[in-house]
Design a binder for these strands. Structure first.
Lengths: 211, 211
DNA sequence: CCGCAAAGTGGAACGTGTTTCATTTTTGCA
DNA sequence: TGCAAAAATGAAACACGTTCCACTTTGCGG
């Protein structure tokens, strides 16, 4: 669960709040995240909670950011196996999917929060998409991608090309839409994987011929 | 706005409720759809509203279904112009996007409702995706697609092939994800169109070479 | 035409997200 | 060390989704 994050902005209180949120959402989903309970369990007053987070959705998007950050760290340590980009990308999305389905209540709650449409969430959502994009590019390449925020000049990883960015974005959008369908009860693990296999075949075949 | 629908199941009361929902959502978005107001404005009691719709989200998904049904009727009357599939598909998504952005509050509210993740909404969501898929296939072909529910054997339109279905599904997923990003404040009309142009190029190029 | 079951009504009541406020605690700095 | 500003507290208040209930209306088979 990666209890420490590299982000120094995430100080004690905020982290406790987010961790409580995750805990409650894991157990009972979106409705189980009762802000009074979150505050009590995290040992803060409602006012404090609302000083840090604008709304319940903000809280869950922060949880998503938190989880994704932890995941990116894990993914970056152990590059994905697979000779072809298609294999690596499928392995990567399979891993993401397994991660989500392992805690379905939490995942549904976080997905729901992303669709709230509040402008205040835009920044956090952007960050999330950015991280997802980097991980997908890493899977395409089979090598980690340099993050601008951390270790600004460690290994001289190649710039992300426009084409890489396009392919990664499109794959992420597809995966995200499929996960939303799963959250809505329209897909199960098998059909998610099947859809990603089909979509990845379609798109990466095109990409390979282009290059 | 297509005030009459071909669905006879949508009887008077339910339709008034949905129309009121749309009206209120257009003005003030998700929060402006106060169920007390919906009931009062539609001339029914709360109990009646809750007999027809399980929740606020159910109401907004019903509105989405209603609007999409009306749109499909309009789209089917006037097939899309354009020599290549790419052009037609882009014209189609451009039209969808314009339709959404014309009533941003309503659109955001409906999108948000789709992500609620309640299993009770699965059927309505499935219907929505089905309609969207048919319209996309029609755009790919440049000709209307037969609907199984209405006029079961009117013009002998070709069966939808697996490949068509895959391409249409993927394009719809991308568009849907992009619209969610728009709803979250991460995209504007220009960037939506740019993204769809890039994605469509990527995918339809692959499709053409496959066939 | 009767009577009953289903649907609708009006409104109260409940839970939870969000806001507010008077008071207390913490923090940064002269 | 002392003090003003910022942050936190605890609790009450409010709004709105949702549920419940006692009563009325509607529709329909006998």
């Amino acid at each position: 669960m990666a209890t420490q994050t590299s982000d120094p902005l995430l100080e004690e209180r905020a982290r406790r709040i987010i961790e409580t949120t995750i805990e409650l959402a894991e157990k009972g989903g979106f409705e189980a995240v009762r802000l009074r309970d979150v505050a009590a369990h995290a040992g803060v007053a409602m006012g404090t909670l609302y000083r840090r987070f604008r709304s319940k959705e903000d809280l869950l998007v922060a949880a998503l950011e938190f989880e994704t950050r932890a995941l990116e760290e894990r993914v970056n340590e152990r590059p994905l196996e697979g000779a072809h980009a298609t294999e690596r990308v499928l392995a990567y999305f399979g891993m993401q999917t397994r991660g989500m389905l392992r805690r379905p209540n939490l995942s549904r709650a976080m997905l729901r929060a992303t669709a709230a449409g509040e402008p205040a969430l835009a920044q956090k959502l952007g960050l999330f998409h950015e991280m997802m994009g980097r991980m997908t590019v890493a899977a395409l390449r089979g090598a980690p991608v340099a993050r601008p925020d951390v270790e600004p000049n460690d290994p001289p990883a190649a710039e992300i090309s426009e084409h890489e960015k396009l392919v990664a974005t499109v794959l992420n959008q597809i995966w995200f839409a499929v996960m939303l369908s799963w959250a809505g009860g329209l897909e199960d693990q098998a059909s998610i994987n099947e859809r990603m296999r089909a979509a990845t075949g379609l798109i990466l075949d095109a990409a390979e011929r282009d290059s």
